[in-house]
Amino acid sequence: MEGAKDLKRLSLTPQARLEHLDPIVCELWHLKQDLLEKLFKRFFDKKSSSEPGTLSHLKTILKKSDVNGKVKSNFRAHSDFINLIITEMIVEQAKEFVTNGGFDNLVPDNITAATKGTKTRVRDEVMNKFMNMYMYNENDNDTTRETSTEPDELYNYCCQLCQWGLHFMALDNTASEGDIMRVIPNLMKCIPFLFSHSKLSKYLVECLDVILKCKSASTLTRTRILEGFFVNRKGGVGKNVEADLVQEHFVRNQKELIRGLGANKTDKAILRVTGAANAISHILEDLDTNLKIPTRRGHHSPDSNEKDISAIRQCFREIHPFKVTPGRKCSKFKFGTPEFKVNTEQLLSSLETIIQRISNGLVADEDDEEQ
């Protein structure tokens, strides 16, 4: 879109110059989809289905045939699968934390009778210790953590998977709550994840572009940008969705109506039918609801149930993925450390180059895979 505005810069009227399309920012749902796709490329391998604790192995246990690593073809199935796995992994981390004496010397015996301030302090200390133990805290300089010459590859794999998955869940929660205060921190946190896949990532550039625009914009413009990311179509707390997802549904409805016109359709007919796309869609939805016609889906994606949760917990209790076992192998994934890291010097160098290009009004280079 920025390139289109550059081409129209010498037009005679403001409308022809597309001045009303400002500011142009990234689309959060597409960013979330891209992050999930990169997560599966990093942690999902069909050949690792025989290795307990990996995503492919857990997918096989749950018989999720629609989870195949192709996120764009079935986003919902992959999203639900990751949310379930990461939630149960955090539960397993909490169990190991308690087993290893995570509460020792932190929780007094009479905690139930303590004041509110004492309970808050103890809670913060316990959570900080838990976050440090599993490398969730940034800039963690804990030198007391045990190290081994023989890395535990499964432990490293699961810890890094949790760090990626928890950020994906944070993006999901931010959208549902419509929390504009978390948008910029989430975009900043996305940068190293996207950079680890490719320094020419399209959405890496988009994240930087939004951050720079919000930083340089006025308070009113900044608020307009952030509030424009989310839409609440039906009302209710926690019922927000990304604005670009709503637009995707709108475009889909338009395409279905245009396809129904058949051959030899005129421009006037297309404009007339697409102008009523939303109204027609609502009428059809209400009709299906009244007639109790189930929604047609291209993929069978049943919701997770207690049986799935029990199967995952039983698997984790057998292998103890978060109990450090030096020398334990995970042949398809060779992660040297449990903490996700990127080369800071290369990251800063790439960011400086991208920021310079954005400041000059140039479209940054993109990876061919991202286009």
Rank of each mutant, 00 (worst) to 15 (best):
V122K: 05
H20L: 14
E27I: 07
E153K: 10
V363A: 04
V231W: 01
M89L: 14
R297T: 00
T221D: 00
L10A: 06
K307W: 15
D303I: 07
Q247D: 09
L200S: 04
R222V: 00
K255Q: 12
K332D: 11
C330F: 08
M89C: 09
V342E: 09
L226C: 08
D267K: 14
D66I: 06
V231F: 00
E51D: 15
E125T: 01
K234Q: 05
G102W: 00
P326F: 03
A263K: 15
V107P: 00
I293S: 02
L271H: 14
D267F: 14
Q160D: 04
P321L: 08
A217G: 08
E306G: 15
G3R: 05
K329C: 08
K307L: 14
G178R: 09
K41F: 10
I191E: 02
R296P: 11
A175W: 03
A4D: 13
E242W: 11
K119R: 15
E150Q: 13
V231T: 00
L12E: 14
H30A: 04
I86H: 12
Q247S: 15
T174E: 04
P302S: 12
F40T: 05
C158W: 01
D109L: 14
D45S: 04
N100D: 15
D286A: 14
I211H: 10
F81A: 10
T295H: 14
S79K: 04
D288T: 09
I293H: 01
H78P: 07
N132W: 11
I24K: 01
M127A: 11
S56E: 04
P52E: 07
D142W: 00
V237I: 12
L212W: 06
T143N: 03
D244A: 10
